[in-house]
Design a binder for these strands. Structure first.
Length: 754
DNA sequence: TCGTCAGTTAAA
DNA sequence: TTAACTGACGAG
C-alpha cells in the first residue's frame, strides 16, 4: 500500500501514516499539504515521507491535496522541509507543530471552509477592517461566569479592545462577547484600519554609494562564498553608522546575481521602519515585508509570491526565518545579539541559531551583524565556525558622546529629593532644556512602583500564580499587575496577611519617573514610551512626536534604546544601570553591556555633541567600565573568561535531556531523578531550572502521559555564578547516575549538527 | 436521573 | 492539541 507520512499540528513526536488514494497518487509529493482526518477532526498536515509498507492497523486515506496551484506545489520546498525536520529534532519539538510555523496562518480557515465545502477562491484583498469591543455603562444584572466575566473586566479596565486581541487570550472570546453584547454590557464596532504602513508611501530609489575599503572587503568575502556555494557564517562587526546595511544590500545583490533569494531577520520589524525603507529604496517593492500588522490574507499573498519566486527578498522578525524563499542563498541576522530572536513560547527556538542551520543546509551564506556581537557568535568565530568581518568605525571621527558615570554611592539626590534623579542628572536636564534640545531617560521598569509592601508585617503583594512582586500601575485605575502573567487586581485596601491598611509603594517605575519629572520641570513636555503606552505601531507615533520636537524629555524602557534616528537628543540618562545588571539571568552582564552601548549611541548623532549619564552603585562593574570606553572586544574577553571560570558553556543555558531506555521503569526513574535534580538545583539557586526531558524508545508510549510532569525550567533568579556552577554540576551528576540511555545536551551549539 | 466537572485516553 | 469518554458528585 502507498503510504504518506504526515506531520499534523498536534503535539506528538511522530508523523501519522495515511493511505494515498489512487486519484492523488501522482500529485502527492514530499512537502505537499494534505487534508487528513484525525479522530473526529480534520487537519491540514504536511507530507514528510512517502513509501510502501505495512499500514498501521487503523489506516485511513488522505482526504484531499491542498496544493491546487501547480506552481506552488509542493507547499514546502525540499530545503525548507529538511530544515524544519532538523529544527524539530534539535529542539525536541513535535514535527507537526514545527511544520505549521512555515505554513501561512490562513490554513485554519481553509481547513474549516473545506470541511463545510464552502471554500471559494476570492481574488483580491478585502478592505482592512477590525472589530473592536467597548464596555457600556450598564451594570450586569446578575453575576457572570467564566470567560464572559473576565473579558468584561478586561474591556472595562483597558478600554476599546480589538476582538482578535481578546481571542488571543480567551479562546471563545467571540461567543462570550456575543453574549455580553446581547446583555447590553458591551458594544462592538467595525473600523477601517490604515493600509500597510510600510508601503504607505512610495519609495524613492537610492543610488548605491561607493563602498569603503572594509565594506568592499566584506562584500567580496561574502560574494566569494556565495559563488562557491560554500555554506559560510560571517560575523559582521561594526558600530551603528559603519555601513552594515550597505553590506547586506550588496550581499543580496550578489545572491540575486546567482538567482538566489535572501532572508533578512531583524529583532522587531515595527521598530525598524528606516531599515525597511533602505531596502525598498534599493529594491523597490520587490521586497516581502513580513510584520505583525499583516492580515492573514495579505500574509498568504506574500507567502505565495515568495513561494512562486516572484519576490526573492523577505524581511521580518523571527518568523521570517520560515519564509518559503526560493533557492535560498543568504540569511542576514541584523542586531544578532538581540534577545528577541529567541522565541520563548510555543515552539521554542533561537532564530539566530536556526538561521545558521538553515543557511548551512541550503549551502547559503549567513551574516550575523551587530555592533556588539553576542558571546555565542564570538565563540563561533573562535572555534572556526564563523568568519569575522570587521567594519571599523568611520564615524569615530564624529566623536562618540561623552559618557559619564554618576556614582550613586557618593552623589546625593537632586532638587526633587529623589535619589534616582541625582544632582548631576538634574543639572544636565536643566541644561538640555535651556538649550532647547531633547533628553532620553532610560529606566527598565514599567508601571508606577515595582513593589507594594505592607509596612506593618513586611509582606510584599505578590502574584498568586507566579509569586513575583506585583507592580503598581497608577493609570488604568490604580491596579496591581503581574508582569509575568498579566494577572491584575485592584489596589488592595489592606495587607492580605495581617490586614494592616498601611501599604507602601516601593521603587521607581517609568510612570512615576514621568510624573516626578513633570512636576520638577513644569515647563518641559515629558512623555513616556513603554509597553503600557505604546504597542507595536503606536511606538512610531511617539517617536514621530519626538522627531517633530513636540517632546522635551522622553522616559522609557528598552524601547527607547532601539533603532530610530533622533537627531535632537543631546542627553541620555540611564537611571539605574544596576537594575539591568542584577536581572535573574546569567547573561545579565552581557545584556546590560549591550544596552549601555546602544543607549549611549543615542546621544548627539545630530547637530550637537551628546552627553550620556549612567547612574550606578557599581561603577567598577566590567559591563559599565567597558561600555564607558565603547570597548566591545575587552568586554567579550572579560565575560568569556568569567564564564570559563565558573565552567559555564559559552553557548547556551538550555539543558535538553533525552531519556532513551527500553525498560519503562528505568526510563521512569531517570525522568523522576532528573526532574528532582532540576527542582532541587532550582530551589538552591532561588529560582527555576530550564530543561526538558524527552523519552524515546519503547518506554515512550507508557510515559508519554507523564511528560507534562517532567517538563521543568531552570531560570536562575540569581546572578551568583557559583550557584550556576552548582546547578550544572548537579545535572551532570544526575546524568552519571542514570548513565545508560540518557543523553543530555547542555552545551547546545547548532553548528555541531552540521 | 441528568448535567456538569475534572481527569484520562487515543488519535494513523 | 483536541474531542470523546469516564466516573463522581449534587441539584432537582
Amino acid at each position: 500500500m502507498l503510504l504518506a507520512h504526515v506531520a499534523l499540528p498536534v503535539p506528538m513526536p511522530h508523523p501519522y501514516s495515511y493511505a494515498i488514494p489512487a486519484r492523488l497518487a501522482a500529485r502527492v509529493a514530499l512537502g505537499s499539504r494534505v487534508l487528513c482526518s484525525l479522530g473526529s477532526r480534520r487537519l491540514v498536515g504536511v507530507v514528510v515521507a512517502k513509501g510502501e509498507g505495512d499500514p498501521p492497523p487503523k489506516v485511513k486515506p488522505l482526504l484531499d491535496l491542498l496544493d491546487d496551484e501547480p506552481s506552488l506545489s509542493p507547499a514546502l520546498p525540499e530545503e525548507l522541509l529538511a530544515f524544519l525536520r532538523d529544527l524539530s529534532a534539535y529542539y525536541l519539538a513535535p514535527i507537526g507543530e514545527v511544520m505549521r510555523l512555515a505554513l501561512p496562518p490562513i490554513e485554519r480557515a481553509v481547513a474549516r471552509a473545506l470541511e463545510d465545502s464552502l471554500f471559494e477562491t476570492k481574488k483580491g484583498i478585502s478592505a482592512r477592517k477590525v472589530q473592536t469591543v467597548i464596555a457600556t455603562d450598564s451594570v450586569e444584572a446578575k453575576a457572570l461566569g467564566g470567560q464572559a466575566a473576565a473579558i468584561l473586566a478586561h474591556v472595562r479596565a483597558i478600554g476599546e479592545t480589538p476582538l482578535t486581541r481578546l481571542e488571543e487570550r480567551w479562546k471563545s472570546a467571540r461567543a462570550a462577547v456575543k453574549k455580553l453584547a446581547s446583555l447590553g454590557l458591551v458594544t462592538t464596532s467595525t473600523r477601517e484600519v490604515a493600509a500597510d504602513s510600510f508601503f504607505a508611501s512610495p519609495a524613492p530609489r537610492d543610488v548605491p554609494p561607493e563602498l569603503t575599503a572594509p565594506q568592499a572587503a566584506a562584500t567580496e568575502a561574502i560574494a566569494a562564498s556565495l559563488a562557491a556555494k560554500a555554506a559560510t557564517t560571517f560575523s559582521l562587526h561594526g558600530v551603528t553608522g559603519s555601513g552594515k546595511t550597505e553590506v547586506y544590500l550588496r550581499a543580496i545583490v550578489a545572491a540575486r546575481a546567482q538567482r538566489r533569494g535572501s532572508i533578512v531577520l531583524v529583532p522587531e520589524i515595527a521598530l525598524t521602519p528606516q531599515l525597511v525603507a533602505r531596502f525598498r529604496a534599493r529594491f523597490g517593492d520587490d521586497v516581502a515585508v513580513l510584520h505583525s500588522g499583516l492580515l492573514p490574507r495579505e500574509r498568504l499573498a506574500m507567502w505565495k509570491r515568495l513561494r512562486a519566486g516572484e519576490l526573492d527578498v523577505a524581511i521580518g522578525a523571527r518568523s521570517a526565518l520560515f519564509a518559503p524563499v526560493r533557492d535560498l542563498g543568504l540569511i542576514v541576522v541584523d542586531e544578532e545579539h538581540d534577545p528577541s530572536f529567541k522565541q520563548e513560547e510555543g515552539i521554542r527556538y533561537h532564530a539566530r541559531d536556526m538561521a545558521i542551520l538553515r543557511a548551512h543546509r541550503a549551502s547559503a551564506v549567513c551574516i550575523l551583524g551587530s555592533a556588539t556581537p553576542s558571546l555565542e557568535t564570538e565563540h563561533l568565530c573562535r572555534t572556526g565556525k564563523a568568519k569575522k568581518l570587521v567594519l571599523p568605525d568611520r564615524a569615530r571621527a564624529q566623536a562618540m558622546p561623552a559618557v559619564e558615570i554618576v556614582d550613586l554611592r557618593r552623589m546625593g539626590p537632586g532638587p526633587t529629593g529623589d535619589k534616582r534623579i541625582s544632582l548631576p542628572l538634574h543639572r544636565a536636564l536643566e541644561a538640555t532644556l535651556a538649550a532647547r534640545a531633547q533628553a532620553i531617560l532610560f529606566l527598565n521598569r514599567r508601571g508606577f512602583s515595582p513593589a507594594v509592601r505592607c509596612e506593618a508585617c513586611g509582606e510584599l503583594c505578590a502574584c498568586p500564580s507566579c509569586s513575583v512582586a506585583l507592580t503598581f500601575h497608577k493609570r488604568h485605575g490604580e491596579r496591581l499587575r503581574c508582569h509575568y502573567c498579566d494577572y491584575e487586581t485592584p489596589f488592595p485596601e489592606r495587607c492580605a496577611k495581617c490586614q494592616s491598611p498601611s501599604l507602601a509603594l516601593e521603587g521607581l517605575g517609568t510612570e512615576k519617573l514621568e510624573e516626578t519629572l513633570s512636576a520638577a520641570f513644569p515647563e518641559a513636555r515629558v512623555a513616556r514610551l513603554d509597553r503600557d503606552v505604546a504597542t507595536g505601531r503606536t511606538v512610531d507615533t511617539v517617536l514621530g512626536r519626538m522627531r517633530a520636537r513636540e517632546i522635551d524629555i522622553l522616559v522609557g524602557t528598552q524601547m527607547v534604546t532601539k533603532g530610530h534616528d533622533l537627531p535632537h537628543v543631546t542627553l541620555v540618562g540611564v537611571i539605574n544601570a544596576d537594575a539591568a545588571l542584577s536581572l535573574p539571568d546569567f547573561r545579565a552582564a552581557e545584556r546590560a553591556f549591550h544596552l549601555l552601548v546602544q543607549v549611549a549611541g543615542r546621544a548627539g548623532r545630530g547637530d550637537a555633541p551628546g552627553r550620556v549619564l549612567i547612574q550606578t552603585y557599581t561603577p567598577d562593574h566590567p559591563a559599565i567600565v567597558h561600555a564607558l570606553r565603547h570597548d566591545v572586544n575587552a568586554f567579550i574577553e572579560r565575560e568569556l573568561a568569567d564564564r570559563r571560570e565558573v565552567g559555564y558553556p559559552p553557548y547556551s543555558r538550555v539543558a535538553l535531556v533525552r531519556v532513551d531506555h527500553p525498560e519503562e521503569s528505568v526510563a521512569r526513574d531517570a525522568c523522576t531523578l532528573l526532574a528532582e535534580v532540576a527542582r532541587q538545583a532550582a530551589e538552591a539557586a532561588g529560582g527555576e531550572a530550564d530543561a526538558r526531558v524527552q523519552v524515546l524508545g519503547p518506554a515512550a508510549a507508557p510515559l508519554a502521559r507523564l511528560r507534562q510532569r517532567f517538563r521543568f525550567r531552570i531560570m536562575l533568579r540569581s546572578s551568583d555564578r557559583a550557584m550556576l556552577r552548582r546547578t550544572l554540576l548537579a545535572v551532570e551528576r544526575a546524568r552519571g547516575q542514570v548513565a545508560r540511555g540518557v543523553r543530555t545536551a547542555i552545551d547546545i551549539d547548532p553548528v555541531q549538527l552540521l
